[in-house]
Design a protein around this nucleic acid. Structure first.
Length: 241
DNA sequence: CCAGACGTTGTT
DNA sequence: GTCTGG
DNA sequence: CCAGACGTTGTT
DNA sequence: GTCTGG
C-alpha cells in the first residue's frame, strides 16, 4: 500500500533525473508528508504530440475518472490494485494509454498489530528516488467556464501489489516501483496497456522491491526532514524489525 | 431493458 | 463507529 | 494513509 | 463511458 510518501527533490531536480523535455507549472515543493488529494509531481508522455513529449506535471493524488461528475469521490482512488486495474471502469482507460511514473524519495508504511500502528519509512538502497508505476487521468470540471484554466484537472494514482521479501514483514501490500530500464515502455502512450502488460511491469518491479530498506520512525505529524529520522533504538536496519 | 455504481486498505 | 478532507 | 468531524433551522 | 445487478 502507499498512503503517505515523501519527495525531497525539487521539481528541477526531478526534471533532470527523469529526463523530461517539458516542466509544467505549479509543481509542488518538496514534502515529507504527502497525503492523498494533495498535488504531486508525475512524469507522463502524452500521445497528443508526435513524437511523444516526456513531461513533469503537477497532478492531484487520487485519480478522477473522466466520467466523474464531481472532483471528490465516494471511494478511494489514491491506489489502484495492479491485479485488477485493467478491468476496473475507473482505471481501464488509464491502463490502456495514460500511464505515469510517480517519483518518490520513499514512503511510509504502518505495521499494525491489534490497535497498535507503528510507522516505518521505506526507501531505496542507493539514495536514488523510486519511480512508482502510476496512472493518470484528465477530468473536465463541468462547474467551470470554458476559459478557466482550472477547468481541466490532472489526477493520478499509484499501483499496488502484494508484498514479497523483507517488506512483507511490515505489510501485505506495496507500491509498484519500476526499475529505470522499464520506464520508457511503461510511459509509451502508443502501447495499449492491458492486464498482461501491468502484470509484466509488476514482475519487473520485484527484484528492486527486494532491495528496499526500511526503519521505524516517530508518528507522522507535521512536515519536515525530522519525519524520516530513525526512532531511538532502531538504527536504520533493512532486514529486521 | 434501465438504474446505479464505478474502490482500497485493513480487520474480522 | 464511520465518514470526510487533506 | 491519518486526523478530525460527526448538525439543524432559517435566512440569504 | 462502461459494467453490474435487478
Amino acid at each position: 500500500m502507499c498512503g503517505r510518501y515523501i519527495i525531497t527533490d525539487t521539481a528541477s531536480d526531478l526534471a533532470a533525473m527523469f529526463e523530461v523535455e517539458h516542466e509544467g507549472s505549479n509543481l509542488p515543493e518538496p514534502s515529507w508528508n504527502i497525503k492523498p488529494t494533495e498535488q504531486i509531481p508525475i512524469v507522463l508522455e502524452s500521445a497528443k504530440q508526435e513524437p511523444a513529449v516526456r513531461r513533469l506535471e503537477s497532478a492531484r493524488w487520487s485519480l478522477i475518472p473522466s466520467f466523474a461528475t464531481e472532483m471528490a469521490s465516494s471511494f478511494p482512488t489514491f491506489n489502484a490494485r495492479s491485479e485488477s486495474a485493467a478491468e476496473k471502469p475507473t482505471f481501464k482507460k488509464s491502463v490502456a494509454s495514460r500511464r505515469a511514473l510517480v517519483p518518490a524519495t520513499g514512503y511510509y508504511e504502518w505495521h499494525t498489530v491489534g490497535a497498535k500502528k507503528t510507522p516505518y519509512f521505506v526507501h531505496s538502497d542507493d539514495g536514488m528516488p523510486l519511480a512508482f508505476a502510476g496512472l493518470y487521468s484528465w477530468w473536465r470540471n463541468p462547474a467551470l467556464a470554458e476559459d478557466d484554466p482550472a477547468r481541466w484537472v490532472l489526477s493520478a494514482t499509484i499501483l499496488t501489489a502484494d508484498a514479497q521479501g523483507p517488506l512483507a514483514a511490515i505489510h501485505d501490500r506495496i507500491p509498484v516501483a519500476l526499475p529505470e530500464e522499464t520506464w520508457d515502455q511503461w510511459l509509451d502512450p502508443h502501447t495499449v496497456g492491458d492486464q498482461a502488460f501491468v502484470d509484466a511491469a509488476v514482475a519487473a518491479s520485484r527484484s528492486q522491491a527486494e532491495t528496499l530498506r526500511f526503519y521505524e520512525v516517530a508518528p507522522i505529524v507535521g512536515n519536515g526532514p525530522e519525519l524520516i529520522e530513525p526512532v531511538a533504538g532502531d538504527s536504520a536496519r533493512s532486514d529486521t524489525m
